[in-house]
Design a protein around this nucleic acid. Sequence first.
RNA 1: GCCGGAGUGGCGGAAUCGGUAGACGCGCCGGAUUCAAAAUCCGGUUCUGGCAACAGAGUGAGAGUUCAAGUCUCUCCUCCGGCACCA
Length: 866
Amino acid sequence: MQEEYDATTVESHVQDLWNANDAFQVTEDETRPKYYCLCMFPYPSGSLHMGHVRNYTIGDVLSRYKRMQGFNVLQPMGWDAFGLPAENAAIKNNTAPAIWTYQNIDEMREQLQRMGIAYDWSREIATCTPEYYRWEQWFFTQLVKKGLAYKKMATVNWDPVEQTVLANEQVDADGRGWRSGALVERREISQWFLKITQYAEELLEETEKLDGWPDAVRTMQRNWIGRSEGVEFDFALADGELAGESAIRVYTTRPDTVAGVTYMAVAAEHPLTTHVAAHNADIQAFVEECKKSGTSEAAMEKLEKRGMPLGIEAINPVSGERVPVYVANFVLMTYGTGAVMSVPGHDQRDHEFAKKFNLPIKQVVQSTVEAVNVVDTAFTDKTNTVSINSDQFDGLDFEACFKATADFLAKEANGDKKVNYRLRDWGVSRQRYWGCPIPIIYDKDGNAHPVAEEDLPVVLPEDVAFSGVNSPIKEDPNFINTTVPGTNEPGIRETDTFDTFFESSWYYARYACPDANAMLDERANYWLPVDQYIGGVEHAVLHLLYARFFHKLMRDVGLIKSDEPFTRLLTQGMVIAETFYRDDDGKPEYFNARDLDLEYDDKGRISGATLKSDGKPVTVGRIEKMSKSKNNGVDPLEMIDRYGADTVRLFSMSDSPPHQSLEWKDGGVEGMNRFLRRVWREVSRLPAEASQHVFEQADLNDEQKSLRRKTHETIAKVTDDIERRYTFNTAIASMMELFNEASRFDDRSDSGFAVQHEAFSALVRLLSPFTPHIAHEMWSGLGYESALIDEAWPEVDEEALVRDTITLVIQVNGKRRAELAMSANASKEECEAAALAEENVVRNIEGKTVRKVIVVPGKLVNIVAN
RNA sequence: GCCGGAGUGGCGGAAUCGGUAGACGCGCCGGAUUCAAAAUCCGGUUCUGGCAACAGAGUGAGAGUUCAAGUCUCUCCUCCGGCACCA
């Protein structure tokens, strides 16, 4: 072992060794417990960023740790390869999306390999290959047959200039198309949906059981599913039938407030609105206006609450009063019945609308504990309340009134108790090119036929000229024209592709059997569920919910046996860094720190910065998530070149716990590099014969015992931090403590060397999941013949943890006044006596009476005196 | 608006079950080495007072429970994240 640590040499040497031995290839093995550790696979954008580094290092630490614990560990990697950026790049660079994507995959694979992560590369998957997507096409045809996939009209963003559908990401905050700048419109087209709502109840119930998931993610999923219990019932139309209907059906979670309904509101798409609009130009104009606004959340948010009276009245089934019906832009056709009863007294939104249109506000719920004035604001409490102004329901609390009204509505107004979900069926059609073709053929009457199993996959043509925004397959007769399955009739192919969440919803299962000649085979039941899943919290709802849904679908088709895909989930925080900018004309221009000269104040804080190229100052901005737009990214490859992958890995784990954000700091990286160089140096200086010496615990002196205790305390601490707490930062801190103590230890006796060798032997193994390359070399440096990846995780020697003496903290009235070294087995009385005799204690209780003495064995004595 | 999470030195953070607040790292200060610098090594570093021993203050603000509170309870403030016309 050389005395100077050279990361580049070490890392390429160790990686070659692993590669030559296929060190991380695994097969099913019933004799060992399995451990499937998975990181969310990347989109192949072409370059690795720090978020990837952090994500994959966490996975590798856990994988390597479990391997040393004796588990049969699977850690695969692949590519979420379909998606919009490939199309954007294609337009910009005039290359086919496939070529761009495969080139990026090659580049990123190389970059990833430099990090030395223990992947089983033989299982690599790219979702854009027909070998992968043919199975999801097959699966979709099964779902169509089971009625779990169906077609219906749905709203999309339509760019009137480009004459194309836009993804939500392609519509800016002002509701304009990204290329044309034209105002995006809403348009109804027929699209495919998966019936996730059929699984809403099971998904919700099992959310409660996912105790290996962060509470935040479970809460988000619960809210996203959004279960509510209420009643659906009719408001009869006051002047008889309209548009073939005699009533307006509504859904409410507050049947106890029906008496307070003073008006109603229906959606722009509601049949009643359409009926009235046919003879009323003003209403027609209003409906058109509603349809013009985009579907994006940003657009919805800005929407002002507006409405118009339809000139219709309905009868309140409880009060018998006539109430006017409005059309309003905030009523959603897709939730409930597309019509709502409005209770301005007890719903804030209804209250605002009532004020704006001068509608009556009626109080029907009274608080039993405070004064209520529904003229100013809605009263929405459901506890400590009684019903008033509600005839036979007066005097009931919320629960009783809910039940009584529901029973009444059941008899008098076609009422039905109903559970509603905020969750909608998952629209999987995308009018994009670079995705998996939906395997459907339409006959001349427009009926949909799933492509026959033997005709799969429907291959996406990759050799395409990409001229505009429109998908090239939509104009490709070779792709479109075919025959209807089972006939000789001409048929037309579906040209929409799947939402890319489709691919990422089942890839974790395919890794178990990437070469299977079926969607999955028995191997999936060996490896699944994933024991540990790691990725960004931005996927808390969509991806993680879709994957859970798919898992249940695959279970119900008989492909797998488990109910849930991911047993434990870790969501890592963002990687953040300083930003620097100039804002001369209202559009800030951001600069990367590498192009700046930074100034620091006397406390080491950044006080100013100037651009190297012109020497003029730039503004120091906030610390934000690394991104292209803020130009504050740090290139992982540059860091690996400078310090080595081990240093980069170690820093990414050391500075904060994984679920929190990590601030990238050059000084911190250098600190980790310094630490590794020190460990290397100490190990290289340890005499070769140190490994030969043995010791007997009973014969050790106090210093030797103390180092042994530190060694084994550290093993216990690091194990607990990785296994239970996920606090890799504190694990690293405690390894540094052990190193500091072991390197200061200067005892050249045989047993001294033996104890020191034990400390370094443990340290190297504890470090190995974090910094596997340097650990491998140091392991041989310590005189071991074996490869470190085949070693077992170090075990705690309980005997080494035993303390003869302990430090007792002495407090007077809760304030620390002294410390005492005591025998570890001293009695309570002895501790108390020693504490009361201590010099500084005597001084502090002088003139006071000791009221009470509290002894916490092994820790402290608190003397209460006044 | 609703639902989460978080506020601790100059900075990132530690304190795991109510028991020594500030581990570990960065930065800064001093020293050694050097012709000099970088690198490296050693020491110091919450604030105030003191040569020191030690004393006082201190975990966003305010109250409370307790022998003992960063940790538990209540009220409030600030920041971050998610959802947001869901009837």
